[in-house]
């Protein structure tokens, strides 16, 4: 019983970790290329979930169209946010950019509160696959689906960054935007594409998040956004495998401290680990040591 309970908690940890991983991927990509901590990223999760809610539950479109439209909505919104709010500030100080990002986050929250009110909405329940049975341990379809999708996206993203032309441009811009421009890389376009990919990931994360926690509200993105940001920092912000590693560590620590230490103190434990980590290795587990960081 003890062992099966531990395995069950381990599965819970993997599950929470995969959600964080999906969100952290977007954070870390945008940071790596634009050197911007995009606080509005968490709110794009919310936009993605409202998208599915609106297209599927309100407009009664077929599920796959609703999901595609929701992802598209986030991609377009992400690109627009970058064009309107961040691009004009590219030469400004990092602090101005950071404040703009926080402002954007609040803008999205209040806009959606105006449209949909603060009353929570029910997210449609559409995953009807059978649960996985391993001995006396039952793993729900939502769980393994989230895990598989986040691993799949991690691999896809890795291939994109390492083996395609766009990916090469991204890496070049992240190393030295000025030099990349001199070599004929369209920096603006590369940053836009990064935002679009990041926002698309946020939409997918939002949809999976709401399949697990089926209540949609305008403030839904705030907490997972912050947690995923911590995961990205823990793993080394800017590093894609780092974000995923950080996310799984965070998810596991959270669940295990709830299970075996104190359920109310889990956040305290998580944040203490972050602080200790930052004292001894400020660049994160897989982060590169650079002289200057925000």
């Amino acid at each position: 019983m003890e062992l099966s309970q531990f395995i069950m908690q381990f599965v819970n940890g993997l599950n929470v970790g995969s959600i964080y991983a999906l969100i952290a991927l977007g954070y870390t990509m945008v940071y790596g290329i634009a050197k911007l901590i995009n606080f509005a990223h968490g709110d794009l999760i919310m936009v993605g979930s409202y998208g599915v809610f609106y297209f599927y539950t309100v407009l009664k479109l077929p599920l796959w169209i609703a999901i595609v439209l929701a992802i598209l909505l986030c991609v377009i919104l992400g690109a627009l946010i970058e064009k309107i709010a961040y691009k004009p500030l590219r030469k400004a100080s990092k602090i101005s950019l950071l404040i703009t990002a926080i402002g954007m986050s609040y803008l999205l929250q209040s806009t959606f509160q105006l449209i949909f009110t603060a009353n929570p909405k029910v997210f449609p329940n559409f995953i009807n696959l059978p649960a996985l049975k391993l001995g006396d341990i039952l793993i729900g379809a939502n769980y393994y689906l989230t895990f598989l999708i986040s691993i799949f996206l991690l691999i896809a993203l890795n291939i994109l960054v390492k083996h395609t032309k766009v990916g090469r441009a991204m890496r070049a811009v992240s190393q030295d935007a000025g030099a990349a421009q001199l070599m004929g890389i369209d920096v603006d376009k590369t940053i836009s594409i990064t935002f679009m990919i990041g926002s698309g990931l946020a939409a997918i994360a939002g949809i999976l998040y709401c399949c697990l926690y089926p209540v949609v509200s305008p403030y839904l993105g705030a907490v997972p956004g912050i947690k995923a940001f911590i995961a990205a920092v823990l793993g080394g912000i800017g590093s894609i495998p780092g974000a995923v590693l950080g996310a799984f560590i965070l998810g596991m620590v959270e669940v295990m401290s709830k299970a075996y230490l104190s359920s109310a103190l889990s956040d305290t434990i998580v944040f203490s680990i972050l602080i200790i980590m930052l004292i001894f290795k400020p660049s994160g587990i897989l982060g590169k040591n650079l002289k200057e960081k925000v």
Partner: peptide, 17 residues
């Protein structure tokens, strides 16, 4: 008697216990 923080959405750990 299991507590959680305001705003938490994942309760699987407590419920497993």
């Amino acid at each position: 008697s299991e507590g959680y923080n305001s705003g938490d959405v994942d309760f699987t750990s407590q419920l497993t216990k």
